[in-house]
Design a protein around this nucleic acid. Structure first.
Lengths: 338, 338
DNA sequence: CTGTTAGCGCGTTCAG
DNA sequence: CTGAACGCGCTAACAG
């Protein structure tokens, strides 16, 4: 059972003044006697008064809170986005509430409901890998709550988005693999509904094409981002009559998993099979062998997305702008490919 | 500018019934005509009504939200605790708001204020490395808001705590180093105000003592958990006339940093210097060489702490229990020590 | 089963 | 500069 906390009324009574005066003293209101203000502030301090954001939000119809919906927090990627986002949010006077969808569509819907009940002023979203219908996300727009996508964006909604150049990143990476002499480059591609999956695959294909390497569909594995299945795919690949000499995984956790599996089979990396990932996760530099990957400015993504969101919040609905910011990637070459 | 969302009154008007009836229909109230209820529910769905938690919390004096204050989210440790906590919280119908103190005392105070303004029903706290005064945390207790510590706990407050047996973990680890033949075991010890630092150091000392190894104060480095300084300390250690043959770092990120530095100096691990950490972070198994460490049931810590907290929330203040749960650790031996 | 009333804690009029 | 009155959206208590 919760006990009631100190309120403005308590202070007003103790000082024998009106609540509105106390309220004014507490909110930098211009018309207030400095002495009254001082007295209120001191008593507030003494009584450990803490303003009740619930009431304030209720009356101002603004919570100064933004919601973030991410697929997961286990890997470092989304955690880092959140770090960047929180920093930008706090600087602008916003708090942040975080929901994980656990890559599950239904849970994403339930997350939307939480955000809506909490009356967040705006939301940052990176969809689950199974999200193909966007009605639940469109509810935000309809209610006048701005939404900004990052990383896993949605083509069907005309809203601000923050992405990296996945095509170019994958292209550069694949070209690097070709340059070190690899010709049979396998790709663990992500689910087709995610644009990042498609773009990365397109970059991979474009690089092969540029270097006149025939595309072998057998080497392109549709993969649902479930790490448990990587073993099956890698086994399949290394048992092909015409084995791959490189594996480009859609992301770093997958690439790291690939490396573990190859090592357990005494396959030499990169001599027999080179391995590359995408995103440059925190520990990718430290694993054995260090992983070649495409670095993303992850914290920056969170920061930019949050700034775009707060900008939308401060606009009238009719003035919403649907800017897409594309940030640069950087090829990071490490020993897993050289 | 935010536009107002659909309210109970809107539904009441549309159906030409009273708001209380709508409210009852929306809240599984027993006394309600099934037909009225059906009509309300359908209209609510159609109008995309979403209950306003701000109002509900204001009147029920309960937010069904718990706050978590952690020092940082960069490393996987606290992220994983949060994963465990969120799971337990959601299961019990609670949401979670997260604040990072960034290892900064003043920011921790500001986090406390955020939690207080948000009227969380309870808080989970792991202190910053600089927290030596606990007045800000005691404010929760005084206001009847239960607090549960985990990992970095506070001896001065008699509240529930969830920890692991740091002494035993460090003891087993140090003993393992001794068993593989190491005698000059250095320790990068954490700040003395953190109990985990002291316990781990005590475990280390106890193991040395048990095996009659003289304690060399020169090998015990007081370290403030700032990764940037690790290089200085490692350099200092390897330039000692009587070098260490093992380094036990207070946590895994530090140990991984130590490994990078030793490798850059062509010092062989573990032959020249063995390295061990604490907590078994996500990637510690994959780095080169794989890191020997003491595994903690991290997600479990979050889960147990949250359950204890919710239990406190459901109790009357006078029935609060100050249980300390100590979870087991497990020595994980990998190639950095063998 | 339903409607009316009061009030949660606060900001914001409008009068003085 | 200060006070009184109203209302944000909702639940709870009391009447019917």
């Amino acid at each position: 059972m919760k006990s009631r906390q100190v309120t403005i009324i308590d202070i007003a009574k103790a000082l024998n003044i009106s609540k509105s005066t106390v309220s004014r003293a507490l909110t930098n209101h211009p018309n207030i006697n400095p002495e009254t203000k001082k007295a209120v502030l001191e008593l507030a301090q003494e009584m450990d008064y803490q303003r009740n954001m619930l009431s304030i939000s209720l009356v101002t119809n603004k919570t100064n809170t933004i919601g973030i919906i991410v697929p997961e927090l286990v890997n470092s990627y989304f955690s880092r986005v959140i770090i960047g986002s929180q920093e930008a949010a706090y600087r602008a006077g916003y708090n942040v509430i975080i929901c994980q969808s656990n890559e599950n569509y239904d849970q994403e819907i339930s997350n939307v409901n939480i955000m809506l009940s909490s009356r967040v002023d705006g939301v940052l979203v990176s969809m689950t890998k199974e999200t193909r219908n966007f009605d639940h996300l469109k509810r935000f727009e309809k209610k006048g709550i701005p939404i900004v996508f990052f990383n896993r964006v949605c083509d069907e909604m005309i809203v601000p988005k923050v992405i990296v150049d996945d095509f170019e990143g994958a292209f550069k990476l694949t070209e690097h693999l070709i340059e070190i002499g690899k010709r049979r480059i396998a790709h663990l591609a992500g689910p087709d509904n995610l644009i990042i999956s498609r773009k990365r695959k397109e970059g991979y294909l474009a690089a092969l094409k540029k270097h006149q390497i025939d595309i072998d569909e057998e080497l392109i594995i549709p993969y649902d981002l479930n790490l448990d299945k990587v073993k099956i795919y890698v086994n399949h690949l290394i048992n092909l009559p015409n084995k791959p000499d490189a594996i480009f995984a859609i992301n770093d956790p997958t690439a790291i998993e690939v490396i573990q599996i190859l090592k357990s089979k005494k396959i030499r990396i990169p001599t027999d099979i080179a391995v590359a990932g995408f995103s440059n996760d925190n520990y990718s530099a430290f694993i054995d062998p260090p992983l070649t990957t495409v670095a993303q400015p992850v914290e920056e993504i969170g920061k930019v997305a949050t700034e775009l969101l707060i900008d939308q919040i401060n606009r009238d609905v009719k003035d919403w702008k649907a800017i897409t910011k594309m940030l640069d990637t950087q090829l990071v070459i490490r020993n897993s490919t050289q």
